[in-house]
Design a protein around this nucleic acid. Structure first.
Length: 434
RNA sequence: GACCCCAUCGUUCAGCGGUUAGGACACUAGGUUUUCAUCCUGGUAACACGGGUUCGAUUCCCGUUGGGGUCACCA
């Protein structure tokens, strides 16, 4: 039997990471077992299900590399089937009509629970059971004639031949009802796996109202889909050894539902950032260069001919693409900003300017201006002058870049070139030595 | 409140009766011929509590506490 899993979001607004993590686990399980991963768009809430929301959803899945094996099923196209099933349930005595609560809204169709205890083995949580007394009958078709989630969800899972329902922890209570529905419908009951919730910094699960957990936000902040995927896969699951940064294939090979933890996990954005940096460093230099060029282009900065050398310096220290422009702008324009705090801190003493003056004098005499030559000159200067690197390098760095941190200084100077370096040092002296 | 679930460093993932309780992120000390957001080497830091079972419990059982989920004509 081919294993079939599905992701069944309702496209109301943006998808948050809790939902998307469920999609990732569904995808991983399908890929691991050689099965199929499907998408069902539960768009019956016409008010909130907009074409834009669906587009956003599809883009997010594409960004994360969650490819599906069949065309998506749109739940809104299935209403007739849902209603027909309700009629069947009525006919077989599994449901009844009632004006529930006597509201005068008319009669709705209510599913009759079997009156027996229900038990199932959840692939991640183990055996779960519920006694008959704790389960009440529930509405499956509203008095306005529209099907309710439980009915639609189960019928569509049957329609899509879903063998493993992998969803959030918040659905465990529904499962007992759904199992009763499957049985009443004469359909085979699938396996269930309920994933622990991902909680936010406040310890609460991410919800539709959680403003900063939309998948699209991570994309627009410059995170890589692969990095987010990797990070999210590790929330509640591990390959069983100490690997963390893994390829898709490694995750697919190692993934299993029984090794998923059953306690909630909190998202750590710092670790996500670290992981993004890992992916950044793993990029091919040419791809990283292209990324940099795009960033710079978008910011209206024109990278010069030495750009690739600059990017090579940046790759190992960049975690997010958004860091590129502010960190490299000084390479491509003499019109850069000085970090005010850095200036106040490191360019305060008069002797600092004397030092800069001397450095400029030394650099001017160099015939070659490559990284090694510059490096040696700087070191000799520090040693012979009995100075400290901490008194020399930071001011020099600020003088040529306006910043107090960055890549190795010697290669930075080499890339900038002698003329530029001398001009900037002297410009800095004139500007700040008051 | 009722029903259900969960409980190892600040966070995350290991550990599945006997371990100096491990890795990663974060933090921190030092190193990379005393610059630097990378890299390397160290360090701080956890089994919620109380009962059992056992020769022996982080690990098994029960309870307490704490956290979470669900109790809709939402999905």
């Amino acid at each position: 039997m081919t294993i079939r899993t599905r992701f069944a979001p309702s496209p109301t607004g943006h998808v948050h990471i809790g939902n998307m993590r469920a999609a990732i686990f569904n995808w991983l399980y399908a890929r691991h077992t050689g099965g199929e991963f499907l998408l069902r768009v539960e768009d019956t809430d016409r008010e909130r299900s907009t074409p834009e929301a669906i587009k956003t959803l599809l883009e997010a899945m594409d960004w994360l590399g969650l490819n599906v094996d069949e065309a998506p099923l749109y739940q809104s196209t299935r209403m007739d089937a849902h209603l027909a099933a309700a009629e069947r349930l009525l006919a077989t005595g599994h449901a009844y009509k009632e004006d529930k609560g006597g509201t005068g809204q008319g009669e709705c169709i209510i599913f009759k629970m079997p009156g027996t205890d229900i038990e199932f083995t959840d692939l991640v949580k183990g055996t779960l059971k519920k006694t008959a007394a704790d389960m009440a009958d529930f509405v499956i078709v509203r008095s306005n004639g529209t099907p309710v989630f439980h009915l639609a969800n189960v019928l569509d899972d049957i329609e899509q031949k879903i063998t493993h329902v992998i969803r959030g922890d918040d659905h465990v209570e529904n499962t007992f009802r759904h199992i009763a529905l499957y049985k009443a419908l004469g359909a085979p009951v699938p396996e269930f796996a309920h994933l622990p919730m991902i909680i936010n910094a406040q310890g609460k699960p991410y919800s539709k109202r959680d403003g900063d957990a939309f998948v699209g936000d991570f994309q627009s902040k410059g995170f890589f889909g692969d990095a987010l995927f990797n990070y999210l896969a590790l929330l509640g699951w591990s390959p069983g050894d100490e690997r963390e940064v893994m390829t898709r294939q490694e995750m697919i090979d190692a993934f299993d539902l029984v090794t998923v933890r059953s306690s909630p996990a909190q998202m750590d954005s710092r670790k996500l950032l670290w992981m993004n940096g890992e992916y950044m460093r793993a990029m091919k230099p040419a791809d990283f260069s292209a990324l940099c060029r795009n960033e710079l282009f978008a910011a209206g900065v024109k990278p010069g001919c030495s750009a690739d050398a600059v990017f090579a310096l940046m790759q190992e220290r960049t975690k997010l693409p958004s860091e590129i422009v502010p960190a490299t702008a000084f390479f491509f324009s003499d019109d850069f900003e000085y970090d005010q705090k850095a200036v106040e801190k490191k360019l305060a003493k008069p002797e600092t300017f004397q030092t800069l003056e001397k450095i400029a004098g030394i650099l001017q005499t160099l015939e070659a201006f490559d990284s090694e030559t510059v490096n040696k000159a700087l070191h000799d200067f520090v040693e012979q002058g009995g100075l400290k690197f901490g008194d020399v390098m930071p001011p020099l760095r600020i003088a040529v870049s306006g910043q107090q941190s960055g890549p190795d200084l010697a290669p930075v100077l080499a890339i900038l070139g002698k003329e530029t370096v001398l001009a900037r040092i002297r410009g800095t002296i004139v500007r700040f030595n008051v």
